[in-house]
Design a protein around this nucleic acid. Structure first.
Length: 317
DNA sequence: GTCCAGGAAAAAC
DNA sequence: GTTTTTCATGGA
């Protein structure tokens, strides 16, 4: 077990932020995080004198949360510290936000515990291939089903203090390209992938054996623009998915993925344009606060009808 | 039945 | 070169 105090950190927000699909809640204030072949359980509790502790108070700058990792301090240092991007000061980026921008200030007050994770590249490429024209719940289910079919069962590492029983749920490693490729298209049926199965298979074949390592290294050594060019050259990856991979795996935090939600935000709240110049170099962090906050809003607020009233509805016969 | 979801490829203009 | 259609799937 390893315990520490963290700022700008909230597991529930990270779990639901849409950047990662392998975190689940497995008890009160307790979460399981799987990444590649790593698995850890994390318990987070409010600490210090804070205003009556709502969950939303977690992770706000200044307050901090007490966080227990089930793993050893060595595993924390060598993997999870980097995964959660704990060397970055998010308070500084929050302060850069225009105080007159009420949408953004609300978004940060609502989702201040979000960070940009440094996720495994192979895993992130596949997860965001699955994400296209899909919703977060279905993505999570497909990713989990894929890991159950081709991954290996992971043994929980270490224990949290006073842990009575482990979660009934079991966890699997993210499958290697060779495993997915060998199963062919048939091996991808029944996972809810829909038409995306052919993208997954093509990417798995492309990353088999040595060529995957080369591909990953070229991406990791590329700057943002180069990475976008490489990624969008692949079957099934367009600009939006490429931006997500750049942001969530390659940590190009200037990347600003525009999906259906962000498109709605920009149309509804920034009709005269979003001030990208103000957030140069870290717009992706700002984007993530906006995205997460938007998920909590009633859809009527940003749906097209709310912005521009739709013409009279066509009469049904 | 229709619309929507962290879109992109293929077809059609 | 740009716009439109198609592509699976399941929940609302």
């Amino acid at each position: 077990m390893y315990q520490t105090i963290l700022h700008d950190f909230d597991m529930r927000m990270l779990m639901d932020s849409g950047q990662v699909f392998r975190i689940c809640c497995c008890g009160e204030n307790t979460y399981a995080v799987a990444s590649g072949r790593h698995l850890v359980r994390i318990r987070q509790t409010a600490c210090g004198p804070s205003k009556e502790g709502t969950l939303s108070a977690f992770g706000m700058s200044g307050e901090g949360v007490s966080v227990e990792f089930s793993c050893s301090p060595q595993e924390f240092d060598s993997y999870w510290y980097n995964y959660f991007d704990l060397s970055t000061d998010y308070g500084a980026m929050k302060k850069a936000v225009d105080p007159k921008d009420s949408f953004l200030t609300s978004a940060i007050s609502y989702g201040g515990g979000i960070r940009i994770l440094r996720q495994d590249l192979w895993e992130t490429i596949l997860c965001f291939l699955i994400s296209q024209n899909n919703n977060i719940t279905r993505i999570r289910n497909s990713v989990d089903a894929l890991c159950r079919r081709y991954g290996e069962r992971l043994e929980p590492e270490g224990f949290l203090t006073g842990e009575e029983s482990l979660s009934e749920r079991d966890f699997y490693s993210f499958p290697e390209p060779e495993k997915i490729a060998s199963g062919g298209l048939e091996g991808l049926q029944g996972l809810g992938l829909g038409y995306r199965d052919k993208y997954i298979l093509a990417m798995a074949k492309r990353c088999c054996n040595g060529s995957g390592k080369e591909f990953f290294h070229s991406l990791q050594n590329a700057d943002y623009e180069e990475a976008i060019a490489i990624l969008t050259g692949e079957f099934g990856i367009g600009r939006k998915v490429a931006d997500c991979i750049c942001l969530f795996a390659l940590h190009h935090i200037g990347a600003f993925p525009v999906d259906t939600h962000v498109k709605q935000i920009l149309a509804a709240y920034y009709p005269k344009g979003f001030p990208f110049e103000r957030y140069q170099g870290f717009a992706g962090v700002i984007q993530q606060y906006m995205f997460y906050y938007k998920l909590s809003l009633p859809s009527s607020r940003t749906k097209k009808e709310a912005v521009k009233p739709a013409p009279a509805r066509k009469k049904i016969s």
